[in-house]
Structure formats: structure tokens, C-alpha cells
């Protein structure tokens, strides 16, 4: 469970000693992920506010960091909690959009007996590295990520990208465990059909 490397351990020690050089390094290294986390729930300006507040809290909170997750994950968890509080304050508590477990685009590809009518075609290369080496596809993916429904975007960011614990994500977003799993699966299906379309047409 301990994911901290010795290099990270050293950084954490220096953060505890309030070493400004260490904070400089940490800000450079982790702010991007923290901003992305906050932006999955908030507009860019508010997201920046939240990340700044988070950094200020970290100066004291780092003493209580137990190293049970990676430092990045811990920072993103605090960020997400604070972002969620902002959402509450701005009364946008509509984070639960209930949904069927299959994306309609995929659902339509099965017959009534549940067999494929239109199975997915081979993509040639299936490795993630190969997919990501295509810049146009990466840009398209980012565009579709932004276009995901709010909850799906937040869940994908926290669970898949920042690797936060399920319990933590459920608590922050006010979702049940099964709701979280469905939402995560729906978000992944959306990006799956997007990549599939891109592989077939070359267009976003």
C-alpha cells in the first residue's frame, strides 16, 4: 500500500521542515495534477483559488500526512475536498446524474439476446503508448474529457487519473459505491467509443 519512494520521502521531510526550496519543487511537480482535479469540478479561476488555498493548508497539514498514498494522491484528495466545498457554497449540488450502466452508443450494438450486432473492429495496435503517441487523438481525448457530464468527469479524474481511494471519492461526491462504479464505467465507455470512432474515421 505504501507508494512513497525514498525520493518522495526526502521531499516530504523537507516540506515538514518548511524548506522553501522543497515547496518550490513540490509546486512545480504537483500543481498541474491539483489544478486538473479542481477543474474537473470548478471553473478555471475558482480552481486556481482552490489550489492556492490547498497549498497554504499543506504547510500545516503535511505533519499529519501518513504516507499511506502517494504524495500527489494526497494533495489531490485535499484539493478535491476543498473544490467540493466550493461547489456546495455556490449551490451547485447536482453531482448525481443517475444513469444506465451501458452507454447508449454501445447498447445499440447488441441484439435483444445480448449478442454483438456490430462488434468493435481491431485497432491494429492496442497498446496505450501507441494510442497516446498520436497527438491528434490525444487532443480529441482531452476535448471529449471536457465534454463529459460533470460527475463522470470528476470520477474519472479522481479514480483513474489521480488514483484516489474509492471511499474518498464516494464521500467527496456523495455517491454510493455502486453509483461510483457505474459512473466510472460510463465515463470510460464514452472515451472508448470516442477512440473507436477516431480509429475508424480519423476524425474527432
Amino acid at each position: 500500500m505504501v507508494q512513497t519512494t525514498t525520493d518522495e520521502q526526502g521531499l516530504i521531510e523537507r516540506l515538514r521542515q518548511r524548506d522553501t526550496e522543497a515547496y518550490h519543487a513540490a509546486v512545480q511537480r504537483f500543481s498541474g495534477s491539483m489544478l486538473a482535479t479542481a477543474r474537473s469540478m470548478l471553473d478555471p479561476a475558482t480552481a486556481e483559488d482552490v489550489v492556492q488555498e490547498t497549498w497554504v493548508t499543506v504547510v500545516d497539514a503535511i505533519d499529519g500526512f501518513e504516507g499511506r498514498s502517494a504524495l500527489k494522491t494526497w494533495l489531490c484528495t485535499i484539493t478535491a475536498n476543498r473544490a467540493r466545498n466550493r461547489l456546495r457554497r455556490s449551490k451547485r449540488e447536482t453531482l448525481t446524474d443517475f444513469q444506465a450502466p451501458l452507454d447508449p452508443a454501445l447498447e445499440s450494438r447488441f441484439n435483444e439476446g445480448g449478442s454483438w450486432i456490430q462488434p468493435t473492429r481491431p485497432w491494429g495496435s492496442e497498446s496505450a503508448d501507441d494510442l497516446l503517441s498520436n497527438e491528434a487523438l490525444k487532443a480529441c481525448l482531452e476535448k471529449h474529457f471536457e465534454a463529459l457530464p460533470e460527475t463522470q468527469r470528476a470520477v474519472l479524474m479522481m479514480r483513474d487519473i489521480q488514483q484516489m481511494e474509492s471511499d474518498e471519492v464516494c464521500r467527496i461526491l456523495g455517491l454510493s459505491g455502486s453509483n461510483l462504479r457505474v459512473t466510472l464505467h460510463r465515463a470510460r465507455q464514452k472515451l472508448f467509443t470516442m477512440i473507436e470512432g477516431f480509429r475508424e474515421t480519423g476524425e474527432c
Partner: peptide, 23 residues
């Protein structure tokens, strides 16, 4: 492969003004 792609997502670089403000 899609899940791996998602997990490998790197946030865009943050502009230095913003980072300086945080610091």
C-alpha cells in the same frame, strides 16, 4: 488500452505566473 490511456493522462503545463502565485 483505453483505461491505460486515461490513467496515463498528463495535465497540461501550468503557466509560471500561476505557479509563482502559489509559491
Amino acid at each position: 488500452a483505453v483505461v491505460r490511456v486515461i490513467r496515463g493522462f498528463e495535465p497540461p503545463p501550468t503557466d509560471s505566473d500561476t505557479l509563482n502565485r502559489f509559491e
